[in-house]
């Protein structure tokens, strides 16, 4: 038996080395430059974005970006449904209940000072992080960054707010559904914008209002904003669902 496992290890390592050798070590063919040449000449003219990565990400290959947001949606739905089912198992009233992360409601008196500090600091940092998130989101076409990165930063800003707030606020946020409404409507709008372009310009995923004189970069900014709102609210929703779980 031992010999057998050793043989399996040797075979797998051999196969891995072979694969890594063939897949990772490049031969002497130079890296292709066709895409770069084409983008340098046409990229800004086509899309109005100075950041050529954004030009690919949101204009030429925006369909991939749509797919990526869909993967995120499904992952969030799946994670939340599993988290809910975990919660049901552990909803036993006899066990001692404390709340994760939200330090205020914890019944450990030694943490009082730290809690206060956290509340003050997150209260000050939160808005700055949120503002920075919106900046990254809005400037995606001329500088590094974009909807997804901005959205993630916004989510961390919201997290900071929640960390400093008592548990009741967290439940409140879950209850009033602002975040999930934002998420769903940003997603619907994203699809509607892409469908609108079929009706107006005949090309899927291109500027729908080009004929009306709207510049392409505004379209990219709009896409960035929609993706950012969607991602930001989605990730915060997932984190809130995780945090408000009861600990057994």
């Amino acid at each position: 038996m031992k010999m057998k496992t050793a043989a399996v290890h040797v075979i797998v390592i051999f196969a891995l080395v072979l694969l890594a050798g063939c897949l990772f070590i490049p031969d002497d063919t130079p890296w292709p430059t066709d895409v770069r040449t084409r983008l340098v000449s046409d990229g800004e003219k086509d899309t109005g974005a100075k950041n050529l990565v954004s030009a690919i990400y949101l204009a030429y290959r925006a369909f991939d970006t749509l797919g990526e947001t869909i993967v995120l949606i499904v992952a969030i739905i799946g994670t939340m449904s599993v988290v809910e089912s975990v919660k049901k198992i552990s909803d036993d009233p006899t066990t001692a209940v404390t709340y994760d992360f939200s330090l205020v409601k914890e019944k450990r008196s030694s943490h009082k000072l730290r809690t206060h500090l956290l509340e003050v600091v997150t209260g000050k940092i939160g808005p700055v992080v949120l503002l920075f998130g919106f900046y990254v989101m809005g400037q995606g076409h001329i500088s590094p960054g974009g909807g997804f990165q901005g959205g993630t930063i916004i989510a961390s800003g919201i997290m900071l707010f929640i960390l400093g707030n008592p548990y009741s606020k967290v439940t409140e946020m879950r209850q009033n559904k602002i975040l999930s409404t934002i998420e769903a409507s940003a997603f619907v709008l994203f699809i509607l914008v892409s469908l609108l372009s079929i009706l107006t310009s005949g090309i899927f995923f291109s500027n729908p209002l080009e004929a009306a004189g709207v510049k392409y970069e505004y379209y990219i900014i709009a896409l960035n904003a929609l993706i950012g709102l969607k991602v930001g609210s989605g990730i915060s929703l997932m984190c809130i669902a995780m945090m408000s779980r009861r600990r057994t």
Binding site: N51, V53, S54, Y57, V136, P144, G145, G146, F148, Q149, T152, I153, S156
Partner: peptide
Amino acid sequence: DVAITEAAV
């Protein structure tokens, strides 16, 4: 862009 994404995500 990738660096920002990797750091944030």
